[in-house]
């Protein structure tokens, strides 16, 4: 039983990271109907921003909660600015063209960021400094949880609550919801849609960057291509939960994280080798799309042709 609890903790840890990234996918899709493939790379950019901040501000030498908060917020800010820049210079100019154009632009952007980082930092993995003293706590029989895992849970929940607040309790949140219902009508009502879209990118990117820094605390190896697989799985999580639906993204992320860890832990009893963990995420996606094309919490909108 405690093994199961342990595996669940492990799974929900990475699931929370997927959820944070999935939120960015889902918000951008909700507003622009654009799958922002560069989003997984923003997660990587966030980890690198945190890494550079930690090194240059000297927080790597003496771990403190203050240092961690500064690095986390700094990385989120940097990623938000980069996210806005990508929207402004890559997506906005092609927004009026067909959806395929923006989709291909997004794929190009993703490759551009990845190899730009390989070019600047080389592909050599770097080790992210420990910003907080890492301790282990036994919580249930033999099951342990480390400080970095607690941090992932706590910060993710905090950010998700904050996001919920922004979307449902603030003016800009109302504008975001309006734009996601109908961009053109919102524009006619006097909503500054360009600003709302930029803000959405900033918000999503900041969440992904937080995911990057949190992951780097848990698994301190960062490299320019770390966002590919993680980003893809977060995308799967967003689709699984119902793309465009915010609670769905969180649910999807947690489900994917738990599912792949349970495959590693128990898959061999039913004939699935542990290295199929990545395949499982995609198998789940296919199944869900077959049974509920709109995703678990998504609403099925009939598109008029």
């Amino acid at each position: 039983m405690d093994t199961f609890v342990q595996q669940l903790i492990n799974g929900l840890t990475i699931g929370s990271i997927y959820a944070l990234i999935a939120l960015g996918y889902t918000m951008v899709y909700g507003i622009l109907r654009l799958i922002n493939f560069a989003h997984g790379d923003i997660y990587m950019v966030g980890a690198y921003a945190g890494y550079l901040l930690a090194i240059y501000l000297g927080f790597d030498a003496n771990p403190s909660i203050f240092g961690f908060i500064v690095v986390l917020l700094g990385a989120m800010l940097v990623a938000a600015l980069i996210g806005m820049a990508i929207e402004r210079f890559a997506y906005r100019p092609v927004r009026k063209f067909s959806r395929m154009t923006t989709l291909i632009t997004a794929i190009g952007m993703s490759l551009f960021i990845e190899y730009l980082f390989v070019f600047i930092f080389s592909g050599t993995p770097r080790s992210f400094p420990q910003l907080l003293q890492n301790d282990n706590y036994t919580i249930f029989g033999n099951a342990t949880i480390s400080t970095s895992q607690i941090l992932i849970f706590a910060v993710s929940i905090l950010l998700m609550v904050a996001l919920q607040y922004i979307i449902f309790r603030t003016k800009i949140g109302k504008a975001m919801r309006a734009v996601s219902f109908n961009l053109n009508s919102a524009k006619l009502m006097g909503v500054n849609t360009d600003f709302v879209i930029a803000f959405t990118f900033a918000l999503g990117s900041a969440l992904a960057a937080a995911g990057g820094v949190l992951t780097a605390q848990y698994n301190p190896k960062i490299e320019p291509l770390m966002g590919i697989i993680t980003g893809l799985k977060a995308f799967v999580a967003a689709v699984l939960g119902g793309i465009g639906n915010i609670p769905g993204a969180v649910l999807g992320g947690l489900l994917i994280g738990a599912a792949e860890t349970l495959v590693v832990g128990y898959g061999s009893y039913i004939g699935i080798p542990s290295t199929y963990r990545d395949a499982v995420a995609f198998a789940i996606l296919i199944l869900v799309l077959l049974i509920r094309p709109a995703g678990l919490l998504g609403t099925n909108v009939q598109e008029k042709v």
Binding site: T3, Q6, Q7, N10, I228
Partner: peptide
Amino acid sequence: KEAYTQTDPDFKGQLTKIRN
């Protein structure tokens, strides 16, 4: 006998199984 791939986000799943 557990296996991993270089892109695995963490190894705790395999390790928990071994710990048992």
